[in-house]
């Protein structure tokens, strides 16, 4: 190693030492893909995560060496450490940090030649743009317009790009003019490490799914509790309701009339009568029985 290290310039050696220090200090790190991420977004990430993590932009080879130095096999990271990478070092829950990073979004304008990952809609209404050369740009994009009070109005919501489309120079300029910064910039996490490698797609938790699971679990517990008639404040009203419903159903089925069951008993009788009437009227339409 020393022979290799000597071939590096001093600043590289310093960087390596720094990374090794961080890897020793923190047991968790997350690797993000910097490709196409503007400096302003990186700036925001650094600022917002200042209390959570130490952030470094790393060179793949150097980081691999640092990993090896602290006893982490860099082989597993081989495919991840290509291109421009940013690494967050932390002792916090990697999923928690990942969510924080994921929730930091910068809105930007689409530039000509970029691909969009979503549908772009020019909304109906006043553009604030006076008629002139811009009119033909609208025309080129097949956006219906009308001029009112010397201002261009878009006639109706118009889809101008679908996911995967390349942004044309005209569209880019219109989006700019309309103040539509629609491109969501967020850092894509390639992976996390917390004793083991956690793939990037597993890092971003689907909170909605957990919400549904919590709901389902609580419902499970409630079902069992109701079935057991557990006398707890949150369960008892349900158990009482269940008992009342059962008692009422039984009373209705038995034709047991009390002031509180009489309506239900009548309805049940009528429902049954209607069912029979339906069958009878099919076999003997000449009876002219009126079925609901």
């Amino acid at each position: 190693m020393s022979a290799v290290a000597r071939t590096y310039p001093k600043w590289k050696t310093e960087q390596l030492e720094d990374l090794v220090e961080l890897l020793k200090k923190y047991k968790v790190f997350l690797i993000g893909d910097l490709t196409g991420v503007p400096a302003s977004h990186v700036q925001r990430l650094r600022k917002k995560l200042a209390k959570t993590a130490e952030v470094r932009v790393v060179k793949p080879k150097l980081f691999a060496i640092a990993l090896e130095r602290v006893g982490i096999d860099p082989e597993a990271f081989k495919d991840l450490l290509t291109g421009q990478n940013i690494v967050f070092f932390t002792n916090e829950n990697p999923f928690d940090v990942a969510l924080k990073i994921h929730n930091i979004v910068t809105m930007d304008y689409y530039k000509p030649g970029e691909k969009t990952d979503k549908e772009i809609v020019i909304p109906e209404g006043n553009t604030g743009i006076p008629p002139g050369p811009m009119l033909s740009v609208f025309g080129k994009l097949k956006i219906q317009t009308k001029v009112q009070a010397n201002v261009i109005h878009v006639a109706k919501d118009t889809v101008v790009a679908k996911p995967g489309d390349v942004i044309s120079p005209e569209l880019s300029s219109i989006l700019q003019k309309l103040g539509l910064a629609l491109k969501e910039i967020r850092l894509r996490l390639k992976a996390g490490y917390d004793g083991i490698l956690i793939p990037g797609e597993s890092l971003i938790l689907n909170i909605d799914q957990y919400v549904e699971m919590v709901k389902a679990a609580s419902l499970d517990a409630l079902k069992i509790a109701v079935e057991l008639a557990v006398p707890e404040p949150e369960v008892l009203p349900l158990v009482l309701s269940k008992a009342v419903r059962q008692a009422t159903a039984l009373a209705v089925e038995a034709g047991y009339v009390t002031p509180e069951t009489v309506e239900l008993v009548l309805k049940a009788a009528e429902t049954k009568a209607q069912a029979l009437a339906y069958e009878v009227s099919r076999l003997a339409p000449e009876l002219g029985i009126e079925v609901k």
């Binding site: 990697p94 999923f95 928690d96 938790l205 909170i207 957990y210 919400v211």
Partner: peptide, 17 residues
């Protein structure tokens, strides 16, 4: 643990009902 941190469990339990 991370997911639960982002959930208002009391509220979710109420909604479950």
């Amino acid at each position: 643990v991370a997911a639960l941190k982002n959930i208002d469990i009391a509220k979710v339990l109420e909604q479950a009902l």
